[in-house]
Simulated scan of single mutants.
Amino acid sequence: MKTPHFFSFPRLDAVEPQEKDWQRLRVVTETRLTPEQLESLAQPERVFPLQRAVLAVHWHPEFVPMEVIATRIQRMFPNAEETLIIPTQHNELLELGPYSGVEVDCYSRGFDQKVQLLLHFRSDRVRQAHTLRAMLEHTRRYRASQLFDFMHAIVHPESEILFLAARETGASAELVQWVREHVRKIQLMIESLHDELPQDSLKNKILRDYFDALRGEEDDDRIDHAQSFLSHVKRLVKERFPLQYFYRTSEVIEEARSLGAGIVIPHPEQFWPILLADYDVDGFETWNPQSQRYTPFLITSLGRANQCLGPERRRKLIFMGDDTHMGEKVKDAAKRHPEKSSREIGWQPAWEDLEISKRVILAGMTREIVIREYRERLHG
């Protein structure tokens, strides 16, 4: 669709960041934590003394120190007997005790879609995994480049994406121009400070966090409308983001298996054709806070599929993922995403749901069985 002439915008060359803009960017990209913040993070808001098994293989430490997270988990589940706890940062291999893990983006050419894999390892097997680490670094850098595409789509004076997002959200030309001016400032500041900024902060959410930091200076309704507009721009940019520069799913699986990895597919309802691809994986995530619609169906389907396997093939395991992002817990309470900030590592209430737990048992599994069987595979 050709962008209408009336929706072109003036160039933004004259926009210059002021000191308050620099300070705002520093605040939203800060990853150093104060002693008070670290102590608060080590104290869980909830405790689950009755939970004896803790399976946590899909969660993101972000910039929170691992020792603080370990203390928080221990305090949250004081009576745990069976545990398997592995971090899965996006495209960055991290270690916690005997296990290491990562959530990696890759490309499935068969159905032309980006998918994600959770890779889990014994830590001693990946400390010298140079090829895998190079693959992850390439993927991390490429995914981070989406932020620059996101900003370019906003500041470019004749971006078709601007028109489409404004039409979908009812954003006025005045609001769009105001957003563009701020994003141009962010772009200039990031270009100037690129090597000094924490690499973990260079993600799409930097724009969301920056505009949230304008609350108090600007009307909340204006900020809310701007955030809606930005979300639509981001979605359109992600839809057009070239996928061929990601490693293919089969390539990632092959390299991971050579290192003794366990492999789990998260969010299957977001890219359901992967269920038909027959990839060499250990299991599927059937529930997480973002993916609950098909939980009973997925559990039942996996149980039936396992019954049809030959003796030489291992069954697919049933996983639940909490998808906790620890960085959400650092933000001021008023600026937290309510649903994301309520997640906890190892807390997946679906295991206790009577209907779901019945289906899991009929599929021949429990949380304890999955922990033991998957641990055995990682040590095999």
Rank of each mutant, 00 (worst) to 15 (best):
P4I: 00
F7P: 03
F9A: 11
F9R: 11
D13F: 14
E19V: 02
E19S: 10
E19K: 09
D21I: 13
D21C: 13
V27A: 06
T29K: 00
T31L: 02
T34W: 07
Q43T: 15
Q43K: 13
P44K: 05
E45I: 09
A53W: 09
P61E: 05
P65I: 05
M66G: 04
E67R: 11
I73T: 03
E81P: 01
T83S: 15
Y99C: 07
R109C: 00
G110S: 12
D112A: 02
L118P: 01
L118V: 03
F121P: 05
R122P: 02
D124F: 12
R125K: 11
R125L: 07
L132W: 07
R133V: 03
M135V: 09
L136H: 07
H138Q: 14
R140H: 14
R141C: 07
R141E: 05
Y142K: 10
D149T: 12
F150L: 05
H152T: 12
P157F: 10
P157H: 15
L162T: 12
A166C: 06
R167H: 08
G170S: 08
W178G: 06
W178P: 02
H182W: 13
L188G: 01
E191W: 01
S192R: 10
L193F: 12
L197S: 09
D200V: 12
S201G: 02
N204H: 04
I206Q: 06
I206Y: 08
L207M: 05
D220I: 10
Q227K: 04
L230D: 01
V233N: 04
K234P: 00
A256T: 11
L259R: 12
L259K: 07
G262N: 06
P266E: 08
Q270G: 03
W272K: 13
Y279P: 01
F284R: 10
F284D: 06
T286F: 02
F297D: 11
L298V: 05
T300R: 12
L309M: 12
E312V: 09
L317C: 00
L317F: 06
F319P: 00
G321H: 04
D323M: 14
D323C: 11
G327M: 00
K331R: 14
A333K: 15
A334W: 13
I345Y: 01
G346W: 07
W347Y: 15
P349V: 07
D353W: 01
E355R: 14
L362F: 09
A363E: 01
M365F: 15
M365D: 14
R367A: 03
E368D: 14
E368Y: 07
R372A: 12
E373L: 08
G380E: 15
G380L: 10
